[in-house]
């Protein structure tokens, strides 16, 4: 076996396993979606598109899968794979997953909409996901501010309506889910390498990174910022975009540093 191909095997294996998890998640979301369509048929209200329903939940799903990513490390090292090959392989698999997820979702969503359009009593909600961030009441309380911005960044990431620009919608979802995956991976690597207390520190770093990522992405996309973060509005879009890239590189660097020489637990 050539050593240069080992990480590609890792990528293949991890992509296979994790995409099964993602398909399971998307399957559950389809069931939920169908249930909502059926209830919408009897009530007098609209329904979100499948893409919109998945949009928010997918981040959490990718975050959880990212957390589980560290548990592949003992498996691979036990099979004689270096930590470096694991890292490269897992990273490529994560990128693949982040691209595949919104594409699959978009395909299912378009198909779904086509079918639903045949049933004319269903109306689609006009998504107003982005404006929701401005409606969170903070009362000028600092702790409240932190909690609300954390909560909203986890629940409501910047959103692009797929009907207005589907390529951008897929790209933004990919970036969102990829970063959520990385944060999950970073947190679990922190716990694995350094133990519980320092691990908690990585949760805080992760939260801050997510809030920063969301705000910067909003600036990049010209979307409204959360009230307590409007002071960031002065940043040019190009700087905001490159800061996101820089943050991603830093998180990737932290994961590599944490796993580079980590002891594999027996």
């Amino acid at each position: 076996m050539k050593k240069s191909t080992i990480y590609l095997k890792v990528t293949g294996d991890m992509f296979m396993v994790q995409s099964l998890w993602i398909l399971g998640f998307l399957g559950v979301m389809i069931v939920v979606h169908i249930f909502r369509i059926i209830t919408a048929m009897f009530g007098d209200y609209g329904v979100d598109s499948y893409f919109d329903s998945v949009f928010i939940a997918a981040n959490i799903a990718m975050f959880v899968i990212g957390i589980l990513c560290i548990y592949f490390l003992p498996h691979f090292v036990g099979n004689g794979v270096t930590r470096k090959d694991y890292f490269r392989g897992a990273m490529l698999a994560a990128i693949g997953l982040s691209i595949a997820l919104p594409i699959i979702t978009m395909v299912v969503s378009t198909l779904g909409q086509f079918i639903i359009n045949q049933i004319d009593q269903i109306t689609y909600n006009n998504p107003d996901i982005n404006s929701a961030v401005q409606e969170i009441d903070t009362n000028g309380n600092i702790i409240g501010n932190i909690i609300s911005s954390t909560v909203q960044s986890i629940i409501i990431p910047p959103y692009v309506n797929p009907t207005s620009n589907w390529i951008l919608a897929i790209a933004i979802t990919s970036i969102n889910t990829f970063i959520y995956y990385l944060i999950g991976w970073m947190i679990s690597s922190g716990f694995y390498r350094l133990g519980t207390i320092p691990g908690l520190g990585f949760i805080i770093i992760g939260m801050i990174t997510l809030i920063a990522k969301d705000s910067l992405l909003r600036i990049t996309l010209n979307l409204p910022l959360a009230e307590q973060l409007t002071f960031l509005d002065f940043l040019p879009r190009s700087i905001a975009a490159s800061t996101i890239l820089l943050m991603v590189i830093m998180v990737i660097g932290v994961i590599r540093l944490l796993t580079k020489q980590v002891t594999v637990k027996l």
């Binding site: 076996m1 050593k3 080992i6 090292v77 036990g78 004689g80 794979v81 270096t82 930590r83 470096k84 090959d85 020489q261 002891t263 594999v264 027996l266």
Partner: peptide, 29 residues
């Protein structure tokens, strides 16, 4: 190569096994 030593060395066929893809493949634990 499940962990690193604090000091000293391990050489397998003259090379350090830690993070060495060729060597790690040949050691099963």
């Amino acid at each position: 190569s499940f962990r690193k030593a604090t000091s000293g060395s391990v050489k397998i066929n003259g090379e350090s096994p830690f993070e060495n893809a060729d060597i790690m493949q040949q050691v099963a634990f």
